[in-house]
Design a protein around this nucleic acid. Structure first.
Lengths: 116, 116
DNA sequence: GTCAGCGCTGTCAAAAAGTTAGTGTATGGT
DNA sequence: ACCATACACTAACTTTTTGACAGCGCTGAC
């Protein structure tokens, strides 16, 4: 079997979209810091709404990157963590994030000269 | 200076969004195969609309990842290529894409068991 | 008793993406 | 000569995605 994200109908395309969608990268990277409960994770990722975090987690869980564990207690408690696949994937994302953060000065300069 | 993509108002957040937005990854990765003209690039990235490709390229150009060269001829001709920063960034994205494509069988299996 | 916190799910409006049409020149085929 | 196509976009309009907010049933702190 042969997967190619450049092909519109390849299933790998939708997986890539879940990962690199608006909140996918930050969710995976946030979980790479360690397992967390829903609202704790939400506090790690500044600006995400409850709805979008729930939606993002569901997509990542379906694709096998995230594990969801419900502790049946009566202050409801749900724990999220990365699967093995999620961890290796998150490492790539963290490398990307590190690279971006490291080169921010160059980006800001490019933006400044672009406006002239 | 200290950049953090997890902070909502950090400029690195918007850069990350340009890179990992719906078409950012594929645009960078597509250009990593070599410079290309607008419509040639569009053919590499199956499914992108003209509007979104133009918009994506403009954002990536402003951030200093993509170089745009206009050859004043009368079938208009515009050439796009990666800057040095664009190349190193695209390498991270290609690594991610390779990782995803390599593990697609696992993802598809996760999706299959999720529906049960 | 009142309030905040838990992990979500709906609703509705705003923002983003996609679709379609048009620009002006200049080739290629018939 | 004529029509279609390619080129690199932009503008107008429609559809999809997002984000902001309310509510759920229950608990523990004050």
């Amino acid at each position: 079997m042969d997967f190619d994200v450049f092909a519109k109908d390849c299933p790998s395309r939708s997986v890539l979209e879940h990962l690199t969608g608006r909140w996918g990268v930050l969710t995976l990277a946030g979980l790479r810091k360690g397992p967390a409960r829903f609202n704790a994770l939400r506090r790690r990722i500044d600006g995400v709404s409850e709805k979008m975090l729930a939606q993002t987690l569901q997509a990542l869980e379906r694709d096998g990157f995230v594990r969801r564990e419900v502790l049946a207690a009566m202050p409801p408690s749900v724990n999220y963590s990365l699967t093995d696949l999620g961890e290796t994937t998150a490492d790539h994302l963290l490398a990307l994030i590190g690279h971006v953060e490291a080169h921010m000065p160059a980006v800001l300069e490019a933006r400044a000269t672009a406006s002239r």
